[in-house]
Amino acid sequence: MTTALKTGLCQALGISTPIVQAPVGSAATAELAAAVSQAGGLGTLALTWVTPQEAAQRIRTTRRLTDRPFGVNLVLDFPLDHLLTTCLDEGVRIISTFWGDPGTVNEQVHAAGALHLHTVGSTEEARRAVDAGVDVIVAQGWEAGGHVRGRVGTMALVPAVVDAVHPVPVIAAGGIGDGRGLAAALALGAQAGWLGTRFLTAFEADTHETYRAAVLHATEADTVYTRCFDGGWPDAPHRALRNATLTAWERAGRPPSPHRPGEGETVATTPDGGKHLRYDDMIPTADASGDLAALALYAGQATGLVTHAAPAAEIVKTIAAQAADILGRE
């Protein structure tokens, strides 16, 4: 890594490149997290919806694949006591949280000697998180894919949060898809970039080809900020690619559940017997079958910058090299 990309947060996290792989739900495999970490970034496992036993297995698999630091992400809207304990008992020392009061877990995280990252969507929320003891703030702009906390764009949000919580380090999230975005985030005062959409097409991600193709062919204008796919996580707005499910719901006037078109229909299944309904918050994983294009195709506005699939390590190195070139120019 060149001097242009060195930040204090890199040292604190034990990484060499200021790129963090966002916790992209079911797409975030141990192989993906390990590959990102091995390439110098910070890989992340999304563990909110798995059992403590499965969480331990994924952590151990990741550790077998890399000796570099990696993190886990937990959503505070859901019961997490046993999961958090398992993660800390397994030796994870970077815990990121989302969507709730970070003060409910901060003491336990710090008691285990771990760093606590928390994602926010406003300066007010950032200040509250710092007051609760959070070590690193992730400022998520409205452009982000998946579940979105606020309504402010990344360009305006990041410097405002940096100013509001200084000297607490800030990671920029939302709309970062290449080295230009990473360079811009660092110029705004962030100490790393948080990328999700770009890693959906990484070879190691658990995403079905239908999903990958949708991301690769979408433009920056093809995503929708919506509450359509709320099965499993109600009252949580999100950004996804437009598809037949979303369009039919909008044409019907966006009726509430259970009055939505096709409500209760099973549109996809998985070999383990899983059945995914039309408005579930489930993405098309690699082993799913059915009308996969009708599922939630979470993606951010950076999707227009994602033009090819690649190994995660190549994604990290390419983005870092482009950012370093930009920031290192005279």
Rank of each mutant, 00 (worst) to 15 (best):
residue 204 E to M: 09
residue 326 I to V: 13
residue 213 A to C: 07
residue 240 A to L: 04
residue 192 A to F: 05
residue 288 A to S: 12
residue 157 L to E: 00
residue 219 T to P: 06
residue 201 T to L: 09
residue 330 E to A: 14
residue 141 G to N: 08
residue 49 W to C: 09
residue 106 N to W: 00
residue 62 T to F: 09
residue 236 A to T: 12
residue 320 A to R: 04
residue 247 T to Y: 04
residue 146 G to K: 12
residue 37 S to E: 07
residue 133 G to L: 07
residue 82 H to N: 12
residue 233 W to H: 05
residue 220 E to Y: 03
residue 80 L to A: 01
residue 30 A to D: 03
residue 113 G to A: 12
residue 17 T to P: 01
residue 305 L to Q: 15
residue 74 L to N: 00
residue 189 G to I: 09
residue 83 L to Q: 03
residue 175 G to M: 09
residue 327 L to A: 11
residue 201 T to Y: 06
residue 191 Q to V: 10
residue 135 D to F: 01
residue 186 L to D: 14
residue 304 G to T: 14
residue 204 E to V: 13
residue 21 Q to A: 14
residue 95 I to A: 03
residue 101 D to R: 15
residue 267 V to G: 01
residue 111 A to K: 13
residue 173 A to D: 07
residue 53 Q to N: 08
residue 160 A to M: 11
residue 310 A to P: 01
residue 85 T to I: 11
residue 191 Q to N: 11
residue 321 A to L: 11
residue 36 V to G: 01
residue 200 L to Y: 15
residue 138 V to K: 05
residue 196 G to K: 04
residue 218 A to Q: 06
residue 284 P to N: 06
residue 264 G to C: 08
residue 209 E to N: 09
residue 90 E to Y: 07
residue 268 A to K: 12
residue 194 W to K: 05
residue 121 G to N: 11
residue 66 T to L: 04
residue 16 S to V: 11
residue 238 H to P: 02
residue 195 L to T: 09
residue 199 F to G: 03
residue 96 S to P: 00
residue 43 G to R: 02
residue 242 R to N: 08
residue 156 A to Y: 07
residue 5 L to P: 02
residue 169 P to S: 07
residue 180 R to F: 15
residue 181 G to E: 14
residue 260 R to S: 15
residue 214 A to T: 06
residue 51 T to S: 15
residue 274 G to C: 07
residue 44 T to F: 15
residue 252 A to M: 11
residue 137 I to S: 05
residue 25 G to S: 13
residue 251 R to F: 04
residue 152 V to K: 01
residue 321 A to V: 05
residue 285 T to N: 09
residue 5 L to S: 04
residue 22 A to G: 14
residue 313 A to K: 14
residue 202 A to Y: 09
residue 306 V to M: 15
residue 198 R to G: 02
residue 270 T to M: 08
residue 160 A to N: 06
residue 310 A to Q: 13
residue 325 D to Y: 12
residue 248 A to D: 07
residue 27 A to G: 14
residue 86 T to H: 12
residue 146 G to F: 04
residue 132 A to K: 07
residue 168 V to D: 00
residue 274 G to Y: 03
residue 113 G to L: 11
residue 307 T to I: 13
residue 228 C to I: 13
residue 304 G to V: 14
residue 218 A to G: 07
residue 121 G to I: 09
residue 206 D to T: 10
residue 74 L to M: 08
residue 254 R to K: 15
residue 87 C to W: 00
residue 47 L to F: 03
residue 164 A to F: 10
residue 279 Y to V: 02
residue 176 I to K: 13
residue 173 A to P: 05
residue 84 L to Q: 06
residue 19 I to W: 01
residue 316 V to E: 08
residue 154 T to K: 07
residue 186 L to W: 14
residue 261 P to T: 15
residue 237 P to K: 10
